[in-house]
């Protein structure tokens, strides 16, 4: 790859084109490998596809662009504090829909920071909730039969199921 290239083009799983700067792409291990392997110069017409839908990829790229400067050069405490606030705002999203895709994308793209952030966000939604409240938030179907539930109650007398 020529060092003059500052941004690369990738395709989402929906077939839309997205631009991402090289320094931001380096936050993902697979993208970093791609940078090393694939020719990204102007006369190269191969555009790699990332198995992430457009709506999610927009968010992932937004995260990468925000975090790239710090990841590449290190940051002061005040920068870190600012970034933390930004992360919280960034994660205020429609839970059932996009958070799931962000989790999958961060996992697939090996992005440690986003992976932790998304998992933490999912956990925060569960924190302090009862079992039935968590089922409701994430649409988890209780597939235990009433006999099985009764048995679980007997086995784990210290736990609450509701």
């Amino acid at each position: 790859m020529s060092s003059s290239v500052e941004a690369i083009t990738v395709l989402s799983s929906d077939g839309d084109e997205f631009k991402i700067t090289v320094s931001a792409a380096k936050l993902s291990k697979p993208l970093n490998w791609m940078l090393e392997d694939v020719c990204f110069s102007d006369d190269c017409d191969e555009v790699p596809t990332i198995e992430v839908n457009s709506k999610t990829l927009v968010k992932v790229i937004e995260y990468c662009e925000k975090h790239a400067p710090r990841a590449n050069s290190g940051a002061s405490d005040s920068d870190a504090e600012e970034l933390k606030k930004w992360d919280i705002e960034f994660m205020k999203m429609d839970v059932k829909d996009i958070l799931f895709h962000i989790l999958m994308a961060a996992n697939y793209l090996h992005m440690e920071g986003l992976y932790d952030l998304a998992c933490q966000t999912a956990a925060d939604l569960m924190k302090g909730m009862t079992v039935s409240q968590i089922r409701k938030i994430f649409h988890i179907k209780n597939d235990f039969s009433s006999e099985e539930q009764e048995q679980l109650r007997r086995q784990h007398p210290g736990c609450s199921f509701d």
Binding site: N107, D124, V131, I140, D143, C159
Partner: peptide, 27 residues
Amino acid sequence: LPDSLLLHILSFLPTKQAVATSFLSKR
């Protein structure tokens, strides 16, 4: 989601609650 991902989510929960998620469903 794969086990590894769900376990990472549970790692951010207090133990008592992480254990309680085993009553959500068979998964």
